[in-house]
Amino acid sequence: MLKKRLIPVLVIRDGAVVQSIGFQHTNVIHWKPVTAVDFFNKWAVDEIIVVDVARNQDQRDKFYTVVDGFSRKCFVPLTVGGWVTSTDEMRKLLRLGADKVAINTEAVRRPEFITECATIFGNQCVVVSIDSKRNEQGVEEVCIDRGREPTGLETAKWAREAQERGAGEIFLNSIDHDGCRKGYNLDLIRKVVEAVDIPVIAMGGVQTWEHLVEGIIKGGADAVAAANIFHYTEHSTKKAKAYMRQAGIDVR
């Protein structure tokens, strides 16, 4: 049987791992991101996601160096996202060693971009990353440009469209829950999981191992991701896995 996946997310700004709270990226956690990957390699993670949240592309080369360094050391799948606006950029990241590439803002601005990527690289390579925020009407709405620009798109509907256009996976983040330590936005995850047939990775809000269990059992996610929580505990991902296994989840 297919295992449920545990995925640490490394949020990178100007070449350093930073903390993300409500989509603000301030504290530097590791200056040398490769150290984090060394840990994760030993700690039996199932995949790694790396996202560039830099405000501009001035220091993009530093991000490439990070991706390059990761891919040489990381013997689990590596998904890379942030600032991907062309198939050339996607090719560049794949050549640097990414296995999958996450697209977000450009996919909303130009939905045919999803299909272009999928046609060239295959659906399995294309992760559509969605940042969702509950709007004043109480509807979950897709936001782009690092969460700053609301789009009017309803999140579950957009996820469905992304699938139809060729996405192989959805990486779903809740802006309201990001860094708030109250657990995943389970209603949102459930809605998106029901709307699509492709795997959904849940992200945003994990503070305890129990939150990971909830994401899978109550949210129905295929994979659970988290960023900040993994950086401060020794053997964190191993402990998380042990907890999930005890809760009856089939993990590696």
Partner: peptide
């Protein structure tokens, strides 16, 4: 059944 999603992504025995 629909509980098995395609692509088949992840670790399997």
């Amino acid at each position: 059944s629909a509980q098995y999603r395609v692509p088949h992504i992840g670790w399997n025995d």
